[in-house]
Design a protein around this nucleic acid. Sequence first.
DNA 1: GCAAGGTC
Length: 966
Amino acid sequence: MKVLCVAEKPSIAKSITEILSGGRWDTRNSPHQYIRNYDFDYNLPPPLGRGRSTPFTVTAVLGHLMSIDFGEDHRKWHSCDPFSLFDAPILTSVSKDLKKVEQNLINEARHSEILMIWTDCDREGEHIGSEVASVCRKVNRNIIVKRARFSAIIAAQIHQAARQANDLDQRQADAVEARMALDLRIGAVFTRFMTMGLQVRIPELAEQLVSYGPCQFPTLGFVVDQYNRVQSFVPETFWYIYVGIERTDEEGQPRTVEFKWRRNHLFDMDIAAILYEQCAINPDAMVLKVETKPTTKWKPLPLTTVELQQSGSRLLRMAPKRVLDIAEKLYQKGILSYPRTETDQYDKAFDFNSLIQKQTHDNQWGQYAQKLVDGAYQRPRNGKKNDKAHPPIHPTAHAGNLDGDERRVFELVTRRFLASCSKNAEGKTTTVEINIADELFHTSGLVITQRNYLEVYPYDKWSDSAVPDFQEGEMFTPTIIELKEGSTSKPNLLTEADLVGLMDRNGIGTDATIAEHIAKIIERQYVTEKQEQKVKYLLPSQLGVGLIEGYNKIDFDRSLSKPHLRRETEHRMQLVCDGLKVKREILNQTIDEYKEVFIKAKRDFEIVIESVNEYLHGRGEAQEALRAATQARRGRAGAAGAARGGRGGRGGGAGVARRGRPDNDNDDDDDDDSNPGLPRGGGRTRASVTSTRGTSTRGRGARGGAANAGVAGTARKRNYDNGVKTCDCDLPAVSRTVQKADSPHVGRQFWTCSKPQNEQCGYFEWANEGESISHPGNSAGQSAERGLPPSKRQRPSSRNETRGNDEDVRCKCDLEAKLVTVNKEGPNKGKQFWACPNNPKASCKFFQWAEEGNPGTQAGPSNYANINYSRNGSNGSGGGGGGGECFKCGQVGHWSNSCPNDSAGGGGAGGSGTGEQSGECFKCGQSGHWSNSCPNDGLGGSAAPNGRGRSGSRARGKSRGRARGR
DNA sequence: GCAAGGTC
C-alpha cells in the first residue's frame, strides 16, 4: 500500500516530509523543475493505515492546476456578441505550463492506493485539492482520496492531520468553481463590451483595452472617490489663542514652551476674539496641574502580507507589488517565511529562540538579537487575524549577502520580527495645565525611560520632548499671547498604502492579489502615479474618472464601481460552503443579475461614452481641472520642487497646522491607525463642537457641509422613495455640498460616509445631476431604522429570500446570518449559533446562539422559490422606475429568473437572449453581421458616432424589450 | 486583447 501526499506548493511538501519522515527521506526529481518527490516510510495507524510502515511519497503542485476559458467559438472577440459569454460553454483544462506537474501526479498516482491532499486549509486549497483528485482518478479510478487538514507546520498538527485525514469538502470546491466562472464570464462580457464600444467611438481609445473586473473597478472607484473628495474639499478658517513662554530647559538653554488651547480652535472669529481679549487684558497665568504618568508605545504586531505591503510602500517607498515580489524571491531563497499570510498571531509552539539566534551574527541588528536571546525577549503581541494556514512573515535565516531592495525588504521584515519579540517602549508624559482669564491651556512633554523595541525598529519615531519645570500654583506671565488664524487642511490623494488598506477593509482581492489589482489599474491607464516630494499618490486619469462617473450616473441597484457586488459574491460563496445553496443556484442567480446590469449598461452606455468624452475633451471646469492635473504631472516629470504637498493652504503659518493635530500626536510611524485618505483637520472641527457656540451652524457638522450641517440620512429620490443611499459600510450615506467658491465643483452635491472620520469607509459619490436630495432633518440612525437601503429591496440576493419573515436572524451588517456549529471541544460542542456571513475581513462579529425551531435553520433550496415572490413585491412597491423590467420579456412585475414568457424566446435563456438582446455589429450598429465582417467598415470612426450610436442604441434597446413582451 | 485566484 502506498500513500501519495500532494501539497499546494513545494515548500510545504518539504516541510511535511521533514516532519513525517523524522528527517530520513529519499528524494527524486519530477518532470517539473520546481517539484521534487520525497519518499519515506510512515507508521500510519488504522483505520487509514495498517499500523506499520507504509510507503509515503510527498509531492506538490504549484497552486491551481486547471485553467478555464471559453471554447474556440467564443474566444475570438469579434466572433460573437459579448452577451453570449454569459452562457457560453466554459472549458477546463490543465494549463500548458503545468502539464509537467500533471504528468508527475499521473506517474505517482498510478501506483498509489491513497491520495492524501495537503493543500492549504482554505477554500482555494479545497478546490486545488479537487483538481488534484480529478487528475489522479483519471489514471487510478479506485484511488482513495483523503484530505489532511492542518493549520500550522508543527509536528503535532502534521502527524494528527495524517492520522485523522477525512474527506475533501466539495462545497468549498464548488464555491470556488462558481467564483471562477463568474469572474471569467463577467470580466469577459464587460471588458469586450466596453473596449469595443469605446474604441469605435473615441479615437484616443482606438487601441486601448478597457477592461472590467469585479476587483479592478472597485479599486479604481476608491481612487476616483478620493480624487473627488479632494476636489470637493472646502477649507474652513478657524481661530485659536496661542500662548508661549520662554523658559530655560534642563541643559540651561532658553526655549519657548508652547501651550495649546483646551478649546483647540474655534470657527467663530468673534467669540475667539472676545476670549482672546480677556486673556490679553488679564494675562496672568496660573499653573493648575502638573501631572506625570507612565506611557507606553506599543511594539508592532506580527507581520501580515497586507501590512508588509503598506509598510514597504510607506517606509521603503516601493510599490506594493514590488515589495511582495521581493518577499517572494527571498522566500524562494529560503530566508523569509511564506510571504502570503493573513495571520498576525504566532502559534503557541512557535520556536522564536532559534530564529532570533540566527540573527545574532548580523552586524547591524546582531547585538540587539543577542540581547533578546540573553533575556530581553518577550513574546509577540497577538493580532486578531488567523488564516490557519501560515504564520506571520518572519526571517527564517540570516542573510548577509543581499543588496539593493532585497536587502531593504529583508531588513524591514527582520527588524519588525525582532521588534515584535521585544518589550514595548516605556516613557513618562508630563502634562502642565494653566489658566489665563478662565481659559485653559496645556502642554506636555515626554521622557523615554526604556527604548526597548525602538532600538531595533527605527521606523517608529518616539522622541523625548521634556517640559521645563513648572510647579502647581505657580504664577507667571506668558511671553506671547496671540490670536492666530488657521485653516482646515485638504485631504491628500490616496497613496498605494492607503489603497491597500481600503481594499483590505472592503474585501477586494486577497492578500496575494491586492497589489496586482493596483498594478492592473495603472497598467490599464485608469490611474497614474503622481510623485509629490517623497510621497507617491494615485491620480485617476481622465479615462478613469470618466468611466467611474459615467457608470455612477447609470442607476444600477449595485454600482459596478463599488465594493458591494464583490461582497455579494463572497457572501454567496459562503452560502455554498455552508450548504445553504448549491453552486448552480448562485451561478444562475448571479448571472441573471449581471445580465440585467449589462442590459442597463448597454442601454445607457451613451452616458458612459459622454462622460469619458467629457473628461477627455470637455470644457467643463471639473474636466479641465483633471486635464490640468494630468498634464502638470506629465510636464513635471519629476521636476524638483513643483509639488506642493497636496495639502491646502493654511492661513496661519507653519505652526498652525501642527497645532491642530490631536494631543500627543507624535506617532509618526508606520502604524495604520488612521485613515490617511480622509480630510485632515477633522479632530479640530470636532473639538470646536464643544465650544460655547451651541447654536452656531458652523462647526456643528463635518466640514464642507456647513449649509447641510445636521442633514444626515437624506432619503434618496428618483427610484428609491423609501430607500436611502448607502455607503460602503451599508449605512445611510450623508449628503454634502461643495461650497468652496473657487472649486470647479462648487454647488455640487455629493454623498459620503456618515461615520466619524477615522472610521469612514472611504465612500464618495457625486449626487446625480438633477437629483433632488431632500432634507428631512432626521438623523442617519433614524433613517437606517425606517427605510431599507435600495439594495435590500432590489437585490435578489439571499437576503431577500426570507424578507418579511420577522424571525429572520440578521447580523449587524443586515445580512442574513449564517448558522455555525461549535466544533471546539467543550460544553458548547455541537451547539449552533448565528454569525455574520461576511468574510473575516468584513465581518461585523455578530454572535447569537441559535434556538431550537428557529426558522432560519430551515433555509435551503425550498426557500429559493420565494425569491421571485419577494422580489416582485418589493419591486412593485418601490415604484419600479426605468430599470425594473425583466430582461427576457421586457415586462415589469417579475424578474428574468421567473419569467412567465420564458418560452417565447425559444431555446435557453442565454441563447435566445443573445440573438435578440444585443446582436448588432459594434462598428456600425446594424444587426445581421458581426463587426469583423462589417460591410459599413469604411465609415470609420468619425461617421459612426453621429446620431447612430447616441440615439440608436438606446432606442433599439427599449423597442427590443417591448417586442419580447408581446 | 477579457477576470481573479493559486504559485514559481
